[in-house]
Each structure stands twice: as C-alpha cells, then as structure tokens.
Design a protein around this nucleic acid. Structure first.
Lengths: 153, 153
DNA sequence: ACAATTACCTTGATACTCAAGGTAATTTTC
DNA sequence: GAAAATTACCTTGAGTATCAAGGTAATTGT
C-alpha cells in the first residue's frame, strides 16, 4: 500500500516537471518571437487581446489582462504614443474610452498571430494528426476546469 | 481541394486559440499562487531553478533563466538581502560565486513545489488516469521538439 | 438634490530588464 | 613567464511593468 502511494507520487512529480518545463519552453519561445518586434511581451499580450476580441473599454481590458486600470492607463498611453493603439471617446458614457488597434497595431497583431499559427503547425507535425487532436482536446478540457476553478484549491 | 485547405486552417486556428488560452490560464494560476508569498514571479522562478538543480554559479543560472548576468546580479543581491539566498565564494575560481538557497529559500521552494503538485493532481483528476498519461507524454514529446528546435522556424 | 458608485488618471515606490562599461581573476599565446 | 585575450561578475543608466493610494469627472440610485 505504501509502495503504491510512493509510486503514485513519483509519477505526479514527473508530470509536474513535464508541465513546468513545457511551460518554460513556451515562455521562451514567446519571448524570442516578441523580441524580434518593437514591443514588449506585456504590450504584445495587450495587442493580442484586442486583436482577438475587438475594441473595448479600459476596465474590461484591465480585467482580461489581470492588471489594474492604473497600470493599463500607462501601457495604453505608451502604445498610443507609438501608434499601435487608438483611443476613442465613448459618447454614451463619457467617463469611458474605447481602446482599439491602429493599422500599425493590426499589422503587429497579424504578424504575431501568424507566428502562433506556425508554432501550432509545428506541434501538429510533431505529434501527428491523431494525437494532436487528443492533445488539444485535453487542453480545452483543462482550460474549462481552470475556469470553473476545479484546479484552484 | 481548396475547401479542404480551409478546413485545415480552421482547425489550426482552433488549436492555436486553445493553446494560447491554456497558456494564459497557467500564467494567471502561477501569478495568483506567487502573489500569496513574499516574492515576485521572476524571483520565484529563480528559487525554483536552484531548488530543482542545486547551487550553481551566476553564469549558469543566468543562462537557465534567460537573463543577462547584470540582471541576475541585482536579483540575487535582493534575494540574498532578504535571506532567501546565500552566496558562496568559489575557492577554485575566485571570480565566481555559488548561489544557493538559504533555509528560508528552501521553505519557499518547497511550498511552491507543493502548489505545483496540487495543480498536477487537479489535472489528473480532471482528465483521468489514462488520458493524463497521454497528455503528459505529449508534453514531453513536444518539449523535446522545442529543445532541438523543430518548432523554431 | 445628494450620495454612492464607476471609469479613468496621476503619482510615488519597487522591481525587472538590458546595454554598456568597469574590475579582477584565469587561460592562452608566444 | 609576461602580455594578450577571455571570463565572471558588478555597476550604472534608461525604459518598462506593476501596484496602491488618492484625485476628478460622469453616472446611477435614493
């Protein structure tokens, strides 16, 4: 019984290492992709979120990025200064702004998106069609679990 | 033929989104775990690397973390000041130092490791034994591919 | 009308990061 | 074995990220 538990833990250890290392690799892949551009990782992430979901208010964007609106104000200011973003007044609620991508921002977004596409092609190539399908199905399943918080306590 | 290609691309799009979102979730999970402690994400990562691989010289650590030695000097200085790390002179090569975890650093490392363990338990719980095995096997396979650079061009 | 809330901005503080330039120790070359 | 090259690390200056706390203006609730 004891031995069985130990073996179980060892496997979890192994899994943990696999996850951590994979995560680190993805991180540095992302880092290296971004460092070829004129924007930082955090800035690219912002661009990505707006590119994916369209223009939105500061508040919403801050929540999606997981930063305070204070942080976001500064980031958006800098990106707008460098012509990646545009800010539009909301006429309905004049406290609010909409943040959207400029043409330059869109170009950056598409370029980055393209890189991701490449990465995924590489993954499919590595795992093969059948296993890729399983793999991404697992990712989706886990993501749902992470959303509803199964993995949080 | 054309339609088939389009369908293929759509699937890759879907995979790309799944990967990105999973990655983001993991990121915020890590962020929330770390924010309960006294150290930053980058600092925790440093502690983790030393905890996993034992004491090492600045140069080596910088390479593993993907930062310059200049950056590392400052980080190590701060963590040593706050008693998470100790620095040891290398008597063989007196230009070098070894960086190692203090007792406090070890405690922090074990705590964080424990959190990872929990996360992995959650994953296994979500996917089930059999599918977990597949999933982590896929991660390992991809990691190897990322190392040798299949996914880099 | 007045109070409470909301959306955003500003400021001050800490941290991360790099590039460039510096020092001291070690290794290589002649 | 002295000079040159390399290596390991440190320092400094500049840009970015981040938050908390406090401020303003607009909106909503009573």
């Amino acid at each position: 019984m004891e031995r069985k538990q130990q073996k179980h833990d060892e496997r979890l250890e192994e899994y943990s290492r696999a996850l951590t290392e994979f995560f680190d690799r993805l991180n540095s892949w992302e880092q290296s992709v971004v460092s070829d551009t004129g924007v930082s990782l955090a800035q690219m992430h912002l661009i990505e979120v707006i590119g994916n979901r369209g223009r939105m208010r500061m508040k919403e964007l801050a929540q999606l990025l997981g930063v305070t609106t204070g942080t976001l104000t500064v980031m958006v200011h800098r990106l707008a200064e460098r012509d990646y973003l545009i800010r539009l007044k909301d006429e309905q609620d004049r406290r609010s702004y909409f943040v959207d991508l400029s043409e330059k921002g869109k170009a950056e977004y598409h370029h980055h998106h393209h890189m991701h596409f490449h990465l995924v092609e590489g993954i499919v190539h590595t795992l093969g069609e059948r296993e890729s399908e399983q793999f991404f199905a697992h990712l989706k399943k886990l993501q749902d679990a992470l959303i509803i918080g199964v993995l949080n306590e």
